[in-house]
Design a protein around this nucleic acid. Sequence first.
RNA 1: GGCCCAUUCGUCUAGUGGUUAGGACACUAGAUUUUCAAUCUAGCAGCGGGAGUUCGAUUCUCCCAUGGGCUACCA
Length: 476
Amino acid sequence: MEIRTRFAPSPTGHLHIGGLRSALFSYLWAKHNNGKFFLRIEDTDRSRYVEGAVEGIKKSLLWAGISWDEDIIFQSERLDLYQKAANKLLEEEKAYRCFCSESRLERVRKLREQNKLPSGYDRKCRNLTKEEIDEHIANGDPYVIRLKVPLEGETICNDLLRGEIRFDNSTLEDIVLIKSDGFPTYHMAHVIDDNDMKITHVTRGEEWISSMPVHVILFNMFGFDLPVYVHLPVVLGESGKKLSKRDGASSVAEFIEAGYLPEAIINYLALLGWSYDDQTQIFDMKKLIELFDISKVSKASAVFSYEKLDWYNGYYIRNLSLEKFYEKALPYFIKANYVNESPTPQEEQYIKKILPQIQDRIFKLSDIISYCKFFFKSPENYNKEDFIDKGRDLQRSKEILEKVLPVLENSEFSEKDLEENLRIFIEKENLKVKDCFMPIRVAICGSRFSPGLFETLSIIGKDETIKRIKNALSQL
RNA sequence: GGCCCAUUCGUCUAGUGGUUAGGACACUAGAUUUUCAAUCUAGCAGCGGGAGUUCGAUUCUCCCAUGGGCUACCA
């Protein structure tokens, strides 16, 4: 049997990183089995619809390397399908029209809450007479269609990860199938669509576990084969609540913007709630497809670790070829205004000299902006303390910088040449290496941290180096 | 309140009726070193609690605790 899975977001905003993980797991399971993966847009709540959300979701998925088979399905284009199915249930008396107003529903809810009864609808319309129904319809009263859930017995559900889950039917509700605007609710659309699309594995967030019994009841009423349900654990923030903006980036778009590589995100997400063995940490998409097993997904929700993601991202940045790194990094140089939209060949060469120096020092591409500043702009204000170390005060640093100037002026500024000259200087002056290099570093970079000194000086060049040291001297 | 789900180092996880409970991130120390990184080495750290089953439970059962979800004409 062909394995068919789907990702079914509602277009209410950006794709959440947890959503991407759900999509990934579904996608991997389908592809692992040479099956198909679909994208279905659950746009049945017109009030929450966000313009452009569908485009954003598509973009994020594609960026991550997740593509779908066949055309995207929009639920809003299939209303007749749901309506027909609902009418069938109506005819068979497995569902009923409910004419209760929203205000009455609210009153009922409040009352039941006060009396500490299980909340929910009181089933007022469940047993309306034919005459009453006809009268309401004749009056043009709006109505929803509700499911007549069995009042007794139990519904046994199965979740691939958790096994059997039993629900007492008396705790179930007559959920709404079709809203008064004619749109289906999630419950209805899920059953009709996943059956229609021949979905074999329904993957969704674990918040759906509680409504699984009514879904099972619906599948049975329609005589459809039950899919395998896989309720995926939630991605949490440090607080233990679902990951949100409060925790940091939470939408895929934000991660893209911050300069995370798709390889890192995919690798990290795959291992958030799933593992192949007790050793392997590095997986690319191909490997994941080969090895992924959905039955080994963890049951417990997982806390999202930005730190570990950063480690993965650093790892994948370090593994980039110069060409690839340049391609990915360029937008950040542009964004920081270090170069223009279309860099000259000279600028490209300059950036390509910088990149290897920062490659194992940054965690995300947006770090480029702050990390590379001194390659393009002379430090403006120095922090005098940066020139001071144990055994070397400001005055001493100044002396050393003054003395090293002629050495630099007579250097060719290749890395090799700089190193030779500076080492000779150190020996001649009987200096500690650090006491010579640190003041230069701070004068050039405006910071105590930088890439290798010779590499940095060589990239910046003689004129600029001299200029910056003189400028520093004038400020000290 | 009702119903449901979950629980191994700080975090993500592996694992078994008898293991020195394994790995990764983070952290600490060391090596390297011109700083910061990267890299390498070492170290720290865990089975939520209580009963029961058993010769023996982290592992099986029950109870509790804690965390989470649902309880909409939202998904």
